[in-house]
């Protein structure tokens, strides 16, 4: 469950005023808004990369407003994937588990499980150089899911993809959510994408967020 309570912040030209959102556990919520509307800022507030001027962030019912990103248990897929350039695909998927001090056997098993789910088994030894946009998104998604977070944040994961790849990744996102039951907040400016994926639709305009639709 993701809850934002009266979040207010201004940073540069972005202003969020009194934003309150509540996304129930296991829901796939899509937040729509134009360029520069503050969509990414909301994701950053949820995962702790930005601190709001006012308001509270609650994840799974706990107040995490003052917790560091590392302690929030949130998987984050930024817009361009932001893969680690010096690591192989295997190392990227293993990264969060290595940080958590997991045993090598457990890590290997989890990485292969993810690679199978995301159909990237054949890429595990590759470095991110020369991978396609779709492949990068799959890896970024796997990296964010690797430590089994309860919450997944996706920042325009489909925007840089061609039509075929976009359909594949969209199907994959549905499958992943069904498979893991992770509460998802997906940010996009694309209405069709929102309608296909979203169980809950939100819209941000002029720093205010409104709920458009909730599919039961």
């Amino acid at each position: 469950m993701i809850t934002l309570e009266n979040i207010t912040m201004s940073q540069g030209r972005f202003v969020l005023s009194d934003v309150s959102i509540s996304i129930p556990k296991g829901q796939y919520a899509v937040l729509m808004g134009g360029t520069g509307s503050g969509k990414t800022t909301i994701l950053e507030v949820v995962c702790g990369l930005r601190t709001p001027d006012q308001g509270r962030v609650l994840l799974r019912g706990d107040d995490v407003t003052n917790l560091r990103p590392a302690d929030r248990d949130v998987g984050y897929v930024p817009q361009d994937g932001a893969l680690f350039k010096t690591m192989t695909v295997f190392d990227q998927l293993a990264f969060a588990l290595v940080i958590r001090g997991q045993k090598a056997g457990v890590i290997r098993e989890r990485v292969h499980e993810l690679a199978e789910l995301l159909a990237i088994d054949h890429l595990l030894d590759r470095s991110p150089d020369g991978l396609s946009g779709g492949e990068c998104q799959r890896i970024a998604l796997g990296r964010a899911l690797s430590f089994k977070p309860g919450i997944l944040l996706l920042d325009e994961p489909l925007s840089a993809l061609d039509d075929d790849t976009r359909d594949q990744i969209m199907a994959l996102l549905k499958n992943v959510q069904k498979h893991t039951g992770v509460t998802t907040l997906h940010v996009t400016h694309n209405l069709a994408e929102a309608q296909q994926l979203g169980e809950m639709m939100l819209r941000i305009d002029d720093g205010k967020v409104q709920v458009l639709d909730v599919t039961p």
Binding site: L49, R68, P69, A70, Y76, A82, L83, F84, I99, S146
Partner: peptide, 18 residues
Amino acid sequence: IDERREQVALTLGCSKKQ
């Protein structure tokens, strides 16, 4: 170096030093 990658590392459980 894109700051985003560092931020992703933070969400994955890293301290700033890590």
